[in-house]
Design a protein around this nucleic acid. Structure first.
Lengths: 134, 134
DNA sequence: CAGCATCCCTTTTGATACTG
DNA sequence: CAGTATCAAAAGGGATGCTG
């Protein structure tokens, strides 16, 4: 039976893992919060709450999940200092930096082309509008 | 009030569109089916059903939705020939090709690093295992 | 053939409360 | 502080039937 090696159940991931593993890695680094986490860590390391404030509007659950996924894939290093109160620092591994840099390239490209995208959307929407009430 | 210019309702997108538009473009090109469509069209143009067979395991609903999103953003060109039975060809626009090439770079990178990711996962899972039953 | 509309289930995400 | 557990809401996705 399909045994997940990870602790918490993620059936959809497990199924798709079998058929196309590297597609899943791509999804991890381009996921909604994955992108933002990688870009943040490209600058410097962050503590959990600090990262949460920096990213903004992310629940602790999703941030924790995202960080765990990226850590498991070997992109993020989790450094939990044995102090009270707890202090955990997150940073990129060398391979994580490679990933983050490529994600940044893509993200920056979208920024550069944003204006053309807006124009394309306006044109598309107008063309639709025209077709509905001529 | 938040009026969607697109015909069908996508409330979450509309909300997020307002605060970070280019993040959304990134999501479109890195979406589950968006990636596969862009990579396919990087080789050549495809007809709808042809593309569906090539991508595999994608419902027509999702393929149509993906293509519309990419078309609206200006990445995909939809060429509907006025013949019976209908024939519609999809291809990349110049800006769509730019997007697709960057997505391909990221996708190929994950392929190259896949082995290291697998090792990282194995190490992570083993470390967890050890902690649970020492 | 190429799609749109509808219904319905699955997966993801978020809010909240709680713990070491 | 740095999470985990739980539950409810939302989005994603598929099957089917219908149209030009």
């Amino acid at each position: 039976m399909a045994v997940s090696n990870s602790s918490h159940a993620r059936p959809a991931e497990d199924l798709r893992e079998a058929m196309c593993p590297h597609r899943l890695v791509l999804e991890h680094v381009t996921s909604r919060w994955g992108v933002l986490v990688l870009l943040a860590l490209l600058d410097r390391s962050y503590r959990f709450s600090e990262l949460r404030r920096h990213v903004g509007r992310v629940s602790e659950k999703m941030l924790a999940q995202t960080l765990q996924t990226l850590e498991r894939d070997g992109f993020v290093l989790r450094d939990a200092k044995p102090v009270i109160p707890p202090r955990v620092d997150y940073s990129l591994t060398p391979i994580g930096r490679e990933a983050a840099e490529r994600v940044r390239a893509l993200a920056e490209w979208t920024g550069v082309r944003m204006e053309q995208v807006q124009e394309a959307r306006a044109a598309y929407d107008e063309a639709r509008e025209a077709k509905l009430k001529p």
